[in-house]
């Protein structure tokens, strides 16, 4: 993996004549987790898609820069809310999808190591339909890890999981993605507080930076400071609605 860059997004976005956000300045710090928190429809996923270079319905007027002045193309790993597994392909083939799509060499040794790290060694030859929701999302994480990119964009990847599996996945992701520049889009203040050193709240066309907690991360589930910040953020979100 190359060095993780810092990403700076500045600008305005409109959706069919309506403002989505303006005078936005989002700084995704190098090698740290940054949360982009906000209610549904606030434009947080759009912002992530803009960084990923994916198509959006908005007109964006601004810049997306990195501190090393290099393009983000080919330096991004992406996880969405759906696991996006190929139903017809074995788990191991799903995990090495990136290199297959690029026609690169088969990274089988690295793949075995990652499958073990996410606890799916016995599932490599199964089909996705034979796995539970949590296991499927682990495969998606393994697929992202194998890509070994310095920037990771997470678009509510744990929101469809049950509470226990979600907490497990948060811990796993935090340990496996440490040291990378991670942007986590979420509507869950608890998740943002547990995992992220930097928290932004996108609401009513504005981006506000919240006062984050001190490391280490992830926070324990019963961390009193984390619970207090979670409550404070939720109150802030409700007040802005």
């Amino acid at each position: 993996m190359s060095k993780s860059p810092e990403i700076l997004v500045k600008g305005h976005a409109h959706l069919g004549g309506k403002k989505l956000f303006e005078h936005l300045e989002l700084r995704v710090k190098a090698g740290e987790w940054t949360a982009l928190l906000g209610p549904s429809g606030s434009g947080k996923s759009t912002l992530l898609r803009l960084i990923a270079g994916l198509a959006t319905a908005v007109e964006f007027d601004g810049q997306i820069q990195t501190d090393d002045a290099q393009s983000l193309m080919g330096r991004i790993g992406y996880m969405a809310q759906q696991d996006l597994l190929l139903e017809w392909a074995k788990i191991s083939d799903n995990i090495i999808l990136g290199s297959r799509l690029r026609g690169a060499a088969n990274p089988s040794e690295k793949c075995d190591k990652i499958i073990r790290a996410v606890g799916l060694s016995d599932k490599a030859d199964k089909l996705p339909s034979e796995l539970s929701g949590g296991q499927r999302q682990r495969v998606a994480l393994a697929r992202t890890l194998l890509e070994d990119k310095p920037v990771i964009l997470l678009d509510e990847p744990f929101s469809a999981l049950d509470a226990r599996t979600r907490a497990d996945m948060q811990d796993l992701a935090a340990s496996q993605l440490a040291g990378r520049t991670v942007l986590l889009v979420t509507h869950d203040p608890g998740e943002a507080v547990r995992l992220c050193q930097n928290i932004y709240l996108l609401q009513n066309e504005k981006l506000v930076k919240a006062q984050p907690l001190e490391p280490p991360f992830p926070k324990k589930l019963d961390d009193s400071k984390a619970l207090a910040l979670q409550a404070k953020l939720l109150i802030q979100i409700r007040a802005g609605a």
Partner: peptide, 14 residues
């Protein structure tokens, strides 16, 4: 599905 196309784009699929 759009999600798969997005993933392939990020992965720089041929």
């Amino acid at each position: 599905p759009q999600g798969l196309l997005d993933l392939s784009k990020v992965m720089q699929a041929k």
